Computed example of a mutant assay.
Amino acid sequence: MSEKVFIDFPAELKKMTFVERPNRFILHCFDEGTKQLEKVHLADPGRLIELLIEGVTIYVLPSTNPARKTKWTAVYVESNGLLVSINTTYPNKLVEKMLRNEIIAELSAYQWVKSEYTYGGSRWDFLLEDKEKNQLLLEVKSVTLASDGIGMFPDAVTKRGAKHVQELTAIAKAGTYKTAILFIVQREDVEIVTSAAAIDPVFAKSLEVAVYAGVQLLSYTCILTKQGIEWGDAIPVDPFLKIQ
């Protein structure tokens, strides 16, 4: 893609060392500069146990909200020399920017209508509409788990994620809306995406059923830099790929 789409970070990233994760949304990281143990907000509630290993480098941003209890937000973890995004906020902003500019090739017939759209008792990431007023519900899933060039989702059992896929399948069958799932890969060493069936067989089976019902599956990579996150390339999604 010739046109670059980029989300800038609001400040310079700071390096810290990961110590522990006391709960889903908090990391304890050591700041070498101040010799202090800092509490860092984590915006990705995934398991991340392959990434959050004691002693790895975490890149953080200062919070712009003075009322927030944590003054730092985790952005990247460095895993074997590779940056992996552990912050879903910036990739989702990137997806929205792409949709608003109508430059995701597979969805270029649609215009962005609304983010965080509620339908059928669930909240969907995006509502899109084409010139014939056909509407599409788009759900975005962030991929951080990978092995040998294969990205996998989820990295922990996700009843909510399976429910989303099942609901999109039912909506597609009903014909009320068109439906799609976009897997946005948060690392640069992935060439294909599939489900992590060994971790969550219910999600994996739900994704297979969704394909037969006409739910569109898309995946794109991201280019991760110290200045921000750039939209990458389309890669295939194969929910039937079996990982040995």
Score class of each variant (00 low, 15 high):
Ser85Leu: 15
Ser147Asp: 14
Pro154Ile: 06
Leu128Trp: 00
Glu116His: 08
Thr34Phe: 02
Asn80Pro: 02
Thr179Asn: 01
Thr158Tyr: 02
Phe153Asn: 04
Asn65Ala: 13
Val40Asp: 05
Leu127Met: 04
Phe183Pro: 03
Asp125Glu: 10
Gly149Cys: 09
Glu3Trp: 03
Thr118Gly: 07
Val165Phe: 00
Leu127Tyr: 00
Ala67Met: 12
Leu61Phe: 09
Asp200Tyr: 08
Lys93Tyr: 10
Thr179Glu: 00
Ser85Asp: 14
Leu48Met: 06
Thr88Tyr: 04
Lys178Trp: 01
Val95Asp: 05
Ile7Ala: 05
Val19Pro: 02
Glu129Tyr: 01
Ala156His: 08
Leu61Ser: 12
Ile235Trp: 03
Ile229Tyr: 11
Glu139His: 03
Val140Leu: 07
Thr17His: 09
Asn134Gln: 06
Ile199Ser: 06
Lys97Met: 13
Arg160His: 06
Asn134Ser: 03
Leu52Phe: 06
Val193Asp: 05
Arg123Asp: 01
Asn23Gln: 13
Leu127Gln: 00
Ala180Leu: 04
Gln111Leu: 02
Phe25Tyr: 13
Trp124Gln: 00
His28Pro: 00
Val143Ser: 10
Leu224Glu: 05
Gln216Trp: 00
Val237Glu: 01
Trp231Tyr: 09
Glu38Arg: 14
Val193Pro: 06
Asn80Arg: 15
Lys4Gly: 08
Ser219Ile: 06
Leu207Val: 14
Ala172Asp: 00
Gly228Thr: 09
Leu82Lys: 15
Phe240Trp: 15
Ile26Asp: 06
Glu32His: 13
Val190Ala: 10
Gly214Gln: 01
Asp233Leu: 13
Ala109Lys: 08
His164Asp: 06
Val5Thr: 15
Gln186Lys: 11
Phe30Pro: 04
Leu241Thr: 07
Leu168Arg: 01
Val185Ile: 15
Val5Ser: 08
Ala67Cys: 07
Ser142Leu: 14
Trp72Asp: 02
Glu32Pro: 01
Glu38Leu: 09
Met16Lys: 14
Thr73Ser: 10
Ile103Cys: 14
Leu61Arg: 07
Trp231Met: 15
